[in-house]
Design a protein around this nucleic acid. Structure first.
Lengths: 149, 149
DNA sequence: TATATTTTTGAATATTATCCAAATTATGAG
DNA sequence: CTCATAATTTGGATAATATTCAAAAATATA
C-alpha cells in the first residue's frame, strides 16, 4: 500500500482544486449558473491562474521557512529573469520576485529544517550568477498565501 | 446587475475551493474513494488549511507588490505577535512572518499601484509599535504561492 | 431609439462527491 | 510468529453538484 499523501500534497500545492460553485452561490445569494458563468469568465480571460491548497507546512515536512535576498553577479544584471526562471522549477521555492534596492531577487524557501535548508542552499544557491545571499529565517508564520494561520 | 467578480475574488483569495477528487484519482491511477479517504484524513488532522485560488494580480487591481521589513519599537520586542496578529486582518497583506536578523517582521503587501501602497503605508504602517520600515518593491513576479507565472 | 453584447435564469443532464459495509493491508503486543 | 486491532482500500449506491443550453433580461453601443 503506497502512501498517497506526498503525491497528493505535491499536486495540491499548485493546483488540483476547483471552486465550490454552489457554496459560493449560497454565500453570495446568487444562482449557481450565474456564479458558474462569472468564474468561467475569469478563467477564460486569465484572471484566475490556479486553484490550490494551503497547508500547515510543519505537518508536511516544510516547517522551516526562509526568505533569501540574492545579489547577482554583474554579468547577470541585464537579465535577472534567466536565473529567476531557473530557480522557479525547484519545489522548495514558494515565491520568486525581482526586487528594487540592494538585492536583485527575493525568494521564499520552505524546507523541513535548517539542515535541509543548508543542503538546498549549497545545491541551488551556489550556481554561477548568484554572487551573494542573505537569509531571513521565519521564526513564526502568522499569515501565508492570504490565509491566516 | 451587480458585478459579482470583486466578491468572488475576495472569497476565492483565501478559500471557497475544493480538491478535484476524480481528477486527482485519474492522475494518480487510484480509485476516487481512496483519494477521498486520504484527503479527508488530511483535512481532519489539520494538514490542509484551505483550498483557494491564485490570481493574475495585475488583473484584479493588485499589480503592485511590496515586501516590507519592519522594525518594532523596543517595548514590542517581547511580543511581536501582538502587532503581527493585528496586521493579519488587512486584505492587502498576503503574508506575515516574524523573522531573524535586524528586522522583526517581514510582510508581503499587494495594492493596485505605488500610490495605493503609499495610502496603505500611511494608514497601516504608522501605528505605534512600528518604529521603522524598509520596503523592497517587486519589479517582476516569477513565482507566487508555488504557482509559476 | 434601435441593435448588439453581456449577463442572468431555470430546467435538464452529466459528472462528481460522498457514504458505507466488506475486504484488504499494516501495526504492535505478547 | 500469531493474533488482535487499527488503518486503508474497494466498489457500488446515492446524494450533491457542475455543466449545458436556450430564453430572457440587463447593459452597452451607435
Amino acid at each position: 500500500m503506497r502512501n498517497l499523501k506526498p503525491q497528493l500534497i505535491e499536486l495540491l500545492k499548485s493546483g488540483g482544486c476547483t471552486p465550490r460553485i454552489s457554496k459560493l452561490a449560497r454565500n453570495l445569494h446568487t444562482r449557481s449558473s450565474t456564479i458558474h458563468y462569472n468564474i468561467k469568465s475569469m478563467e477564460k480571460d486569465g484572471t484566475v491562474r490556479s486553484y490550490k491548497a494551503v497547508f500547515d507546512y510543519k505537518k508536511i515536512g516544510e516547517g522551516f521557512c526562509t526568505f533569501v535576498l540574492i545579489h547577482l553577479s554583474p554579468d547577470e544584471y541585464s537579465d535577472p529573469l534567466k536565473i529567476a526562471n531557473m530557480l522557479a522549477a525547484y519545489p522548495e521555492i514558494e515565491s520568486i520576485d525581482v526586487v528594487t534596492g540592494e538585492w536583485e531577487l527575493l525568494i521564499k524557501v520552505r524546507t523541513a529544517s535548517i539542515e535541509e535548508y543548508y543542503t538546498f542552499a549549497t545545491r541551488v544557491l551556489s550556481i554561477k550568477g548568484i554572487a551573494r545571499t542573505q537569509s531571513l529565517n521565519s521564526l513564526k508564520q502568522v499569515k501565508t498565501e492570504f490565509v491566516i494561520l
